[in-house]
């Protein structure tokens, strides 16, 4: 039963994620954290970190991670199968239509409007990760502000946007700084 639920949840994630890995992220959060409660928000943030650091599509990484945690390796398999199934059906169908009509204008019209929605969805999921980093999941007050988290976030944003550093290098640096600060000052 849980295997079927995993398959269904990741089927839905794949079915509605159009336009790359970041577009899938808010869907993964809504299924895995909100609808099924398979992970806490903090575990989800760890999943994003791990998915960013490892090769492969985020949908498959998330499926394996969530599946393994909920139901072991069979869970990982069922969730991964859920990711692949909508593609198998829809890609074949779209490829057939494309060969037949050689026109993608309707699809392009749809994509043109998905993009702003997808940006907004990524912003909303990003905001929840940012709140977790800044306030450790507690109430949003100045007293609860995590100074180290805020500093690392600003540093990382600067390195990404002004210095064009690679995301993996930036994340490793943030992790190392946080570990160093924790060991030196005994924080946390």
């Amino acid at each position: 039963m849980i295997l079927l639920e995993l398959f269904g949840a990741f089927f839905e994630i794949a079915l509605f994620s159009i336009g790359g890995g970041y577009a899938a992220m808010p869907l993964i959060r809504s299924q895995v954290v909100q609808a099924h409660g398979w992970m806490t928000m903090s575990e989800f943030a760890d999943l994003l970190t791990i998915a960013e650091m490892t090769p492969g599509p985020i949908q498959l990484n998330a499926a394996t991670f969530a599946g393994m945690r909920v139901a072991g390796f069979p869970g990982a398999l069922c969730a991964s199968l859920g990711v692949v199934t909508p593609s198998l059906v829809l890609v074949s169908l779209l490829a057939y239509l494309y060969r037949r009509y050689k026109s993608l204008s309707l699809i392009q019209g749809v994509l043109g409007f998905l993009r702003p929605a997808v940006v907004a969805l990524i912003a909303s999921a990003g905001l929840s990760v940012l709140l977790l980093v800044l306030f450790d999941g507690q109430r949003i007050t100045m007293a609860n502000l995590d100074g180290l988290g805020a500093g690392l976030f600003l540093l990382a944003l600067f390195l990404l946007r002004r210095r064009k550093m690679s995301p993996i290098a930036v994340m490793l640096l943030c992790g190392a700084l946080s570990l160093a600060a924790g060991v030196l000052f005994g924080a946390g």
Partner: peptide, 13 residues
């Protein structure tokens, strides 16, 4: 937790 700050920045970017 440090790497999460990096992820938040990547998403913001």
């Amino acid at each position: 937790s440090g790497m999460q700050a990096g992820v938040a920045a990547v998403l913001c970017d």
